[in-house]
Simulated scan of single mutants.
Amino acid sequence: EQAHRFWNRIAQWVGSKPRPIWIVCSLVLVAFALLLPQFKASGVASSDLFLLQTDSKSGQQILGEHFDAGSGSPTVIIANESSLDAVTDAARIEGVTTVEPVTGPDGSVTVVDGQVALQATLSDPADSLDAEQTVERLRDAVHAVPGSDALVGGPTAVDLDTKDTATRDRTLIIPVVALVVLLVLIVLLRAIVAPILLMLTVIVSFAATLGVSSLLFNHVFGFPGADPVVPLFAFVFLVALGVDYNIFLMTRVREEAARVGTREGTLRALTVTGGVITSAGVVLAATFSALAVIPLLFLAQIAFIVAFGVLLDALIVRTLIVPALTIDLGRRIWWPSALSRSEPQRDEQATTPAG
């Protein structure tokens, strides 16, 4: 009963000044979202994935101090035998210390199906971003050799291709997920305006979460960056969870609006669902936060982003922005359904703020 009274007071406050509430809260989220370009998701070195010092990290540091850092994991170039000399010369670029063909026991160059293999030793550690940039330049150099049909592989090239694929997937999957969720909302709420507004609030909340995360990751936690899949995982988690909370609220609002009007229905729905949704958000945030105890960069970042984003959705977006927007727009939010054209008379009588 005490919790019910608390959420009733929250609902009455939102109902008393809906437009200032959603405008101010939205401006705060947009301000945080402006920090999004600072989120570094171009990848990190494999040795930086561990938040604690490990034997592998120590060994890589010692290797780099006494030998060419990439000597333990050379880059491999496959080319036609006829282009061996030209490819060898082309591969001698900045960042590559030595280029040698793979030879057999007798010291002669090994030829398989008219192709030869060369090993290029990089000056930077094989798992570093500098090494990946060297591989990109190396590919450009050997691909320019006529008739070489050169291919560049090896551990560094695999890391580079994996990150490029993750970046392309992120660019494709995020819009597809957003579109599918929007279509589901349209079918569920039988409206267009409400689903679009809900998706906009979730997307702005996601952008604000990454903005805050970039500020803390770069200047407080001192993280070296993030894997390209981190924003993708964060988007999938936060959109799914944020939309869930909005669905719980807005389906109840629609049910109540059909009986008492949009304004009164929103106040009732917020009062009834407030405690349940907020409790679920807090529990979920605490659950994801537990991942931060694992000393892996990826999990620590996902733990913070999802936990913070869930709390932002549950406490700000669903509690303040969505109800305030719904009350401010009134029955227009249900366009083009019949509910947008006529509502119970009580909605008009409830336009005076309570209290």
Results as ranks from 00 to 15, higher is better:
E1Q: 12
E1F: 11
E1Y: 12
Q2T: 10
A3R: 08
A3L: 11
A11K: 12
A11Q: 14
G15P: 06
S16R: 13
R19W: 07
I23Y: 08
L34T: 08
S56P: 07
K57Q: 15
A86F: 01
R92V: 06
E100K: 11
T103N: 12
G104Q: 13
T110N: 11
T110R: 13
L118D: 06
L122D: 08
D127M: 05
D130P: 04
T134C: 13
V135E: 05
L138H: 02
L138Y: 01
P146R: 14
G153T: 13
T156L: 09
A157V: 05
L160D: 05
D161C: 04
I174V: 15
L179D: 06
L185N: 09
V193N: 08
P195F: 06
L197G: 00
A208D: 03
L216S: 06
F223Y: 15
V230M: 07
A240Q: 01
M250W: 04
R252T: 09
V253N: 02
V253K: 05
E255A: 14
L284C: 09
A286P: 07
A286R: 03
F288Y: 12
A292F: 10
L299C: 03
L299V: 03
I302D: 02
A303T: 00
A307R: 05
F308R: 00
R318H: 02
L320Q: 07
D328M: 04
L329H: 13
L329P: 02
G330N: 11
S337V: 05
S337A: 11
E348W: 10
T352N: 05
P353G: 12
G355Y: 03
